[in-house]
C-alpha cells in the first residue's frame, strides 16, 4: 500500500507492507536513530515525534500514518551543529551506550516544546516511557534541566 508521509520536513511517497510498523518503515528508509528495543511500546528506544507528540513508533502500523508528520532525532542537529539538548546530554553524562539516547532526546524535545521550564517531576514524567539501563536516569534528568535553561537563555537573546 502506498502512503504519503512527512519525515523530518520531507514529504515522501512510500510503499508499505501491511504488517510493517512505523519503526520498521523509518529504519527501512534509513532513519537508523529510531531503535528497536522491545517492540511493544515499553522501552521508548523507538520514540519519534508524530504531529507534535512523542510516540512509540513500534506501536503504530505504517499503513495508518498516511498524511502524518514525523520527526526523528536526525532532524534536530548534527555533530557540527548539535541541538542544545544534544550537547547538554553529552556534557551531563546522559549518554552512555547511547542506544536509548535518540528516543530519550525526542521525548525531552516534545516536553520542552510544550513546557520550556519543567520541574524535575515533570521531566521524570515526560521520560517515563524511555528506559535506560546505563545511566540510572539521574544525569539524563540533569541534562534536560541544563538544556531547558540554555534554550530559555537563547530565546531571550533572540
Amino acid at each position: 500500500m502506498e502512503i504519503i508521509l512527512t519525515v523530518n520536513k520531507q514529504s515522501r511517497k512510500v510503499e508499505v507492507r501491511p504488517a510493517e510498523t512505523l519503526l520498521d518503515l523509518l529504519r527501512r528508509l534509513g532513519y537508523k536513530s529510531v531503535k528497536y528495543g522491545c517492540g511493544e511500546g515499553a522501552c521508548g528506544a523507538c520514540t519519534v515525534i508524530m504531529d507534535g507528540r512523542p510516540v512509540n513508533s513500534c506501536l503504530i502500523l505504517a499503513v495508518t500514518v498516511d498524511g502524518r508528520e514525523v520527526t526523528t532525532v536526525e532532524d534536530l542537529g548534527t555533530i557540527q551543529k548539535p541541538h542544545l539538548l544534544q550537547s547538554a546530554f553529552v556534557e551531563s553524562g546522559a549518554v552512555q551506550c547511547g542506544f536509548c539516547t535518540p528516543g530519550m532526546i525526542m521525548a525531552a524535545k516534545a516536553l520542552l516544546d510544550r513546557n520550556p521550564s519543567p520541574s524535575e517531576d515533570e521531566i521524570k514524567e515526560a521520560l517515563d516511557g524511555n528506559l535506560c539501563r546505563c545511566t540510572g536516569y539521574v544525569q539524563i534528568i540533569e541534562a534536560v534541566r541544563l538544556a531547558a535553561r540554555r534554550m530559555k537563555a537563547e530565546k531571550k537573546k533572540n
Partner: peptide, 17 residues
C-alpha cells in the same frame, strides 16, 4: 569531565550500532 568522545555522534543519531 571531558565530554564522551563518541557522545555527540550518539546524541545526533549518527552512530551506527
Amino acid at each position: 569531565g571531558v565530554r564522551k568522545v563518541d557522545g555527540l555522534g550518539l546524541a545526533v543519531g549518527q552512530s551506527r550500532f
